[in-house]
Design a binder for these strands. Structure first.
Lengths: 207, 207
DNA sequence: GTCTATAAAAGGATAGAC
DNA sequence: GTCTATCCTTTTATAGAC
């Protein structure tokens, strides 16, 4: 364990707080909180234990911050998607494809959410971050279906039902891929998409 | 902490090993492994720490046994369902209803599976228990759809696709109910069922 | 801001009596 | 089979120098 002379203040380009959140996220998704020690996290992020307490109140604070970080990441990703794509069917298609592409990070986020929600160390701040994420997911999908109906490209369906089915199915695909060896996320999403277009009365030849 | 005189050998009616597995299961589903201590489990099951090591090799052994216990439970439940119900549509309907009814235990099992699979302390025995469960789920649903088609009550669909969609959706409903406050499992399953009967060309008026 | 060293607590596991 | 007491290791968290 060789130590380099004197420590140098970190410039903001390499934020140690961020590095810690990333490392925590990674370790937590591979193992369960409580088995992951602050030393593990520190080692992974190349930060000493004492520094963790400089940046965060305690272990729990770091863990919650890591979850929030994961949520914010996913949030931005999906928010961008909804801003970039106009066409309702195209948006839904990309929505599905994105889940397929980002299984790993999304599954990590979900596992952390589940651990957090079923645990007992909760805070309003983190609860709200999770709520905000799912609310925005709902708003985006709901709007999308409504617009599709208004534009006449989708059958007159209940948007709320479609939203529930789509987002619940996707959650299922994310976790199942983490539980069942050999589960084919891509295939699952493909067959689901076919069912969805069928229900929406949309001709998906273009995809 | 009052102690009753001399210990009395437990008769098989109240198996301590079983009590420990149940308590472990309960605590693990509420919190993450590693945060749950053997002392916690012992306290919950009214068994001393030392006794845990009499019944199990070590903490990990107890934890894995608890998971297997949870899986076996669910397995029996679904297996019974498939043996009791002949009619394909009725079986699927009951399948959905059972998930609705047993959200809690099923969600616990899923969380444990996820923790276990994403962690690194794995054993063949436990891996196989999980695999067996999902395999049997697949077999049952697949057979069910095939029979429905053969009987002419379902449209000619690809059974494999239906199985993937149904079981993935249900997994999603189970976890989401643990993550999103106020998620209405019942409603989610109801709207999904409607979609399913639609796809299968089945008139579900009877339910 | 960063590190080393260490205190304080908690947890896993065992010894040994009954 | 069961319990009490305890050992030893790991872990969280802090003190204090630079």
């Amino acid at each position: 364990m060789r130590k380099v002379g004197r420590p140098k203040a970190q410039d903001s380009a390499f934020d140690r707080s961020l590095a810690l959140k990333k490392s925590a996220l990674d370790l937590l998704s591979r193992d369960t909180a409580g088995k992951v020690t602050i030393k593990d996290i520190g080692r992974e992020a190349n930060v000493t234990t004492a520094m963790i307490y400089y940046y965060f109140e305690d272990k729990d604070d770091l863990l919650r911050s890591a979850i929030e970080y994961a949520i914010d990441n996913s949030f931005e990703h999906f928010d961008k998607l909804s801003q970039d794509i106009e066409h309702p069917a195209a948006l839904i298609h990309e929505w599905l494809r994105t889940h397929e592409e980002l299984v790993e990070p999304i599954r990590k986020m979900m596992k952390l959410n589940l651990d957090y929600k079923m645990g007992k160390d909760r805070t309003d701040r983190t609860d709200q971050a999770i709520q905000r994420f799912y609310d925005s997911e709902r708003t985006i999908l709901l709007d999308c279906v409504k617009r599709g109906i208004r534009l006449g490209i989708f059958t007159e369906v209940d948007p709320e039902s479609i939203w529930v089915i789509v987002s619940t199915f996707l959650d299922g695909a994310m976790v199942r891929s983490g539980i069942v060896d050999g589960f084919d996320v891509r295939k699952a999403i493909v067959v689901f998409e076919a069912l969805l277009w069928d229900r929406l009365g949309y001709n998906s030849k273009s995809f």
